[in-house]
């Protein structure tokens, strides 16, 4: 069972001082590691590779993935000025893993920063794989060529389906509890090499960012002034007036 997990480094704080692995990718990696372990227990081979696209420095997330238990890691080094859409990210990843016969590709449902949720399903299309998004449960019998998944729908419903491998799933938050990197694995990770690939030809993007603007307000948004006590009094008065308190 050869599994690929796509991971991304994102800013945890708006100033960019703290960077971390995209929270949703931790669930993706954890799910892949659990599947690998199930295969190992059944005496079958399993391996988890991770790939990230990002500027220099983004390999930190690959090291973290090693610490969690990933076997191999690849860093596609992008130009920090380049800020392509999911279509570009997926195109570059598809190009980099061409010829690697993965049985399963796992991504997070979306990135925390862009929140598009498109890299996974676009990558599936480019790799010619069946795809299921928003997966909240997986089950597969080691050795079988099928993965059963449950996709989260609205209203607390789940769409259950079986996919023939190879396939791609995007994993919803909450599917598992991502492990912390273990000390022994972190120490071993220091000796591991990260395969580094330079991004050469960037595929044409499907969209251009024209500008950023402040979101529209859907309500009046009256900002309460004064001390914290003044604000508490103002809320208290309003709620009394409205008969809520």
């Amino acid at each position: 069972m050869k599994i690929l997990v796509c991971i991304k480094q994102v800013n945890e704080t708006p100033d960019g001082h703290t960077q971390a692995m995209n929270r949703f990718d931790e669930y993706a990696l954890e799910e892949a590691l659990c599947i690998k372990e199930r295969f190992k227990e059944a005496g079958l081979d399993g391996g988890v590779d991770v790939i990230t696209l990002g500027p220099e420095g983004a390999e930190t997330v690959v090291k973290r993935a090693f610490g969690m238990g990933a076997d191999n890691g690849c860093h596609l080094v992008s130009d920090p000025k380049q800020n392509g859409s999911s279509a570009v990210t997926a195109g570059l990843i598809a190009g980099a893993v061409k010829g690697c016969a993965y049985d399963l590709v796992v991504t997070g449902i979306m990135s925390q920063d862009r929140m598009e949720g498109q890299t996974g399903p676009i990558l599936a299309e480019l790799m010619g794989l069946a795809c299921a998004t928003g997966v909240v449960a997986t089950s597969l019998v080691p050795g079988a060529a099928v993965i059963e998944v449950e996709r989260e729908m609205e209203k607390g419903e789940r769409d259950c389906l079986a996919m023939t491998l190879p396939a791609l799933i995007t994993v919803q938050a909450g599917i598992n509890s991502p492990r912390y990197p273990s000390l022994s694995k972190v120490l071993k990770a220091a000796k591991k090499t990260i395969k580094t690939l330079a991004v050469e030809a960037v595929p044409a993007d499907t969209q251009t960012l024209v500008r950023l603007e402040a979101p529209l307000k859907s309500r009046s948004g009256r900002v309460l002034g004064g001390t914290v006590d003044d604000k508490a009094v103002a809320l208290f008065d309003l709620l009394r007036e409205r008969g809520i308190l």
């Binding site: 251009t208 402040a214 979101p215």
Partner: peptide, 11 residues
């Protein structure tokens, strides 16, 4: 995280 909107033109 919703602090800004990006205006995007399809290409």
């Amino acid at each position: 995280n919703g602090v800004k909107n990006a205006l995007v033109r399809p290409d």
